[in-house]
């Protein structure tokens, strides 16, 4: 009796495709249904922890390239640009002196008004170790996670202003969704007019300020700061400045384009705000106003401690006082706007 070799049954190609497609759809369904936490989120967190060192390698390897990019950007400046920058520097120095006067004045006035502390910020410094691996999400990865008591939803900023908020947290790394992402939205107000709106990201990397009525005067260069509404971001963090205002006759609101105060390429170290309280209790009626200000908030001076040692260690927890990074480029809103005069 001759032995006939057994024919191995081969699964049809189409069946494999259908099976894998169904599996993918099942994964998507589970992902959508499990919301903000679940097994797939946990798997991603573990995967994030494993991949964090590789991302760090990439970040370290690419830092010279980014430096070259910055250098070439600066090298491209002509004499006029340098002159303009020098002039701007002079103006800023003068402005800084003036602002210091306003700060001290504000301190005195607030003592008179017995305003409570507005903010009580605590922050953890972190390094950026990775950027988005796909084109559809504008996120960064930082080297601090749940081991540093970070949780999802914490505001993230650098010395210039707001960057975004933590979205997913693993043991030693976290993903931060940037405010320039299409799915980001920040409650803000125009610093000059104190009009509240919502700042959303876009595909082109710019921000759009929404829900500003047509009768509100908005000028190019107006500063945008967080309003504190919603409770996610503390009040008074700079977000951007107006670069274009478009008015269409049939629109209810203005179309306002805002340039973020920070560039993604410049993110190296960031601060994650682990705790902030808003205890605004001003008595507005008691303040006789002659200036252009609406709400009055603020408090006295603040100590600054960025927590980053000389060796670049940003691990220690920082207490930013009430206003965050004073002495850096971030200043509280009351320091920038015109002072309120009392009769």
């Amino acid at each position: 009796m001759a032995l006939v070799p057994k024919k191995t049954k081969r699964i049809p190609d189409g069946a494999v495709l259908v099976l894998l497609c169904l599996l993918s759809i099942a994964l998507m369904t589970v992902w959508v249904r499990e919301g903000d936490s679940g097994i797939l989120h946990d798997v991603r967190a573990v995967f994030g922890t494993v991949m964090a060192p590789f991302q760090q390698v990439g970040s370290l390897a690419s830092s010279p390239i980014r430096e070259v990019g910055n250098y070439s950007e600066n090298a491209g400046m002509n004499a006029n640009d340098i002159m303009e920058l020098k002039a701007e520097n002079e103006e800023l120095r003068a402005s800084a002196i003036r602002l210091e006067e306003y700060r001290q004045e504000s301190e005195r006035l607030q003592k008179l008004l017995e305003l409570k502390d507005v903010y009580n910020l605590e922050a953890v410094g972190a390094r950026v170790i990775g950027w988005s691996t796909d084109s559809w999400n504008r996120v960064i990865t930082i080297n601090k996670g749940s081991s540093a008591n970070l949780t999802a939803g914490m505001p993230v900023m650098n010395a210039n202003g707001l960057i975004g908020q933590t979205e997913s947290v693993s043991l030693n790394s976290s993903t931060v969704r940037l405010i320039t992402d299409e799915r980001s939205g920040v409650a803000v107000f125009l610093q000059e007019s104190r009009t509240e709106g919502v700042l959303t990201g876009s595909y082109d990397g710019l921000l759009y300020l929404q829900f500003i009525p047509l009768d509100i005067k908005v000028d190019i260069g107006n500063s945008i700061i967080t309003s504190g509404a919603g409770g996610v971001y503390p009040k008074g963090i700079p977000v951007g400045e107006v670069v274009a205002v478009e008015l269409y006759p049939n629109d209810v609101y203005q179309t306002i384009v805002v340039k973020p105060v920070t560039r993604v390429a410049n993110y190296e170290e960031v601060l994650v705000l682990t705790g902030h309280e808003s205890e605004i209790a001003p008595n507005y009626n008691a303040v006789p106003q002659t200036g252009n200000t609406g709400t009055e908030d603020g408090a006295d001076g603040a100590d600054t401690d960025t927590g980053a040692g000389e060796d670049g260690d940003t691990s220690q927890s920082m207490r930013l006082g009430r206003y965050g990074v004073l002495g850096g480029r971030w200043t509280a809103p009351w320091e920038i706007r015109e002072p309120t005069y009392f009769s």
Partner: peptide
Amino acid sequence: FVLGIVFDLLSSGPIGVMPLVLC
């Protein structure tokens, strides 16, 4: 499918989309 899952785990988008696309 396998590479798609890895890609989705690396990114911050929903898991299961890229496996379907790549399949």
